[in-house]
Simulated assay, not measured.
Amino acid sequence: MLKIGCHLSTTKGFENMGKEALEIGANTFQFFTRNPRGGKAKDINQKDIDAFLKLAKDNNFGVLLAHAPYTLNACSADENTRKFAKEMMADDLIRMEYTPNNLYNFHPGSHVKQGTEVGINYIVELLNEVIKPEQTTTILLETMAGKGTEVGRSFEEIAEIISRVELKDHMGVCLDTCHVYDAGYDIVNDLDNVLDEFDRIIGLDKLKAIHLNDSKNPFKSHKDRHEKIGEGFIGLEGVKRIINHPKLRHLPFFLETPNELDGYAKEIELLKSIYEEV
């Protein structure tokens, strides 16, 4: 069964996100842990959580993907920004345990002209401080498009971070199709070799989720502009190969395309129609 969802707003609570997902044909979803452009988090409502957990179990939901806010920059040149990132992620990981055994995704960050190695050092330092042995949440590094001074533009950079995390069993990767295509990994014409390269450098056992997006820009553009499924440079055939690939088809897919709910519903219906049950 295709595990497919999109990004939903947390403002209505978990139970309503679950119901909204079902209404558009989804069986999982992604959500921001707090204000994506700030840092304020909504209070935990245990009754809401309990209702959602029952709904998810009754409807065979896939694993959920929480997304850290964009303001979290673990490798900023500013010490206060790094401190804020550390406090925010530590709090997020505590909150994630209310919905255990799910995924927490974050952008590695931008080193702001300090250099990639300095940026990676800061990211590793943060992760080694916030990850706890008892947590059930898996933390995912997102593959990035390589614009500006982003860290995570290559499989080598992602692998370097994971290799230096002490509790690396709690680490994984979220592969964003728009980002990796824009970064220079040809998932349209050379998907098998891209996945072989991922496996050689990082290990496919670390690939836990896919951000399924088309790209507004051509291959290796380093632009990071998401497009609706089938309307960009990856194209519908490219997407079809991705969701049906034997090394990917079991993973949860999360849409971050420029859509409202009705648009997501149409994309989910389209993806289900081209997913080949085996």
Rank of each mutant, 00 (worst) to 15 (best):
L270I: 04
E276Q: 14
A21V: 00
V124S: 12
N193Q: 13
E23I: 05
E79A: 13
H250N: 13
E160C: 07
V124D: 11
G232A: 07
T138H: 08
I94C: 07
K247Y: 08
N45H: 09
L195W: 08
V63E: 12
E237H: 13
I210H: 12
L270E: 10
G238N: 01
G146E: 02
L126N: 13
F31E: 00
A74N: 14
E117D: 15
N45L: 11
I24N: 10
R95F: 07
F219H: 06
N35P: 07
A159E: 05
H222M: 09
R225L: 11
K132D: 03
P252R: 04
V239M: 11
R164Q: 15
L2C: 02
K113T: 13
T149G: 12
A68N: 06
D78R: 11
N193T: 05
V130W: 06
A77K: 15
G172M: 04
N193D: 08
A41Y: 09
P69Q: 04
F233E: 03
L271Y: 14
G13P: 01
D190P: 10
S163P: 11
L270C: 09
L270Y: 07
N16E: 14
L140S: 12
F84K: 10
K57N: 11
N259E: 15
G148S: 05
I49M: 14
T71G: 08
F29D: 00
M1A: 13
G38L: 05
Q114G: 09
L248N: 11
D196G: 07
V118C: 10
F198C: 10
N102H: 13
T177R: 08
P246M: 06
M96W: 08
P36E: 06
Q114R: 12
Q30A: 15
V124R: 11
N105K: 03
E267D: 09
E277D: 14
I274A: 10
E125T: 02
R82V: 14
V165W: 13
H111D: 04
H226M: 07
G235D: 03
Q30N: 15
L65E: 00
A183I: 01
E256N: 09
D205V: 05
N73Q: 07
G232D: 08
T33D: 02
N102T: 00
P133A: 03
T143A: 15
E227Y: 09
I229K: 04
S154I: 01
H226N: 10
A159T: 03
K168H: 12
H107F: 12
L140W: 06
N60I: 01
V118F: 06
D262Y: 08
R95K: 14
Y122F: 13
D224M: 12
K47T: 02
C6P: 05
R249M: 10
H170P: 01
E129R: 11
H67A: 04
A66K: 00
L65P: 00
L65D: 00
K57V: 01
N213V: 03
E97K: 05
F219A: 06
L53G: 00
I268E: 05
R95C: 02
N45E: 15
S221H: 10
L248H: 10
G115Q: 07
C75Y: 09
G152K: 02
G5D: 03
G238V: 01
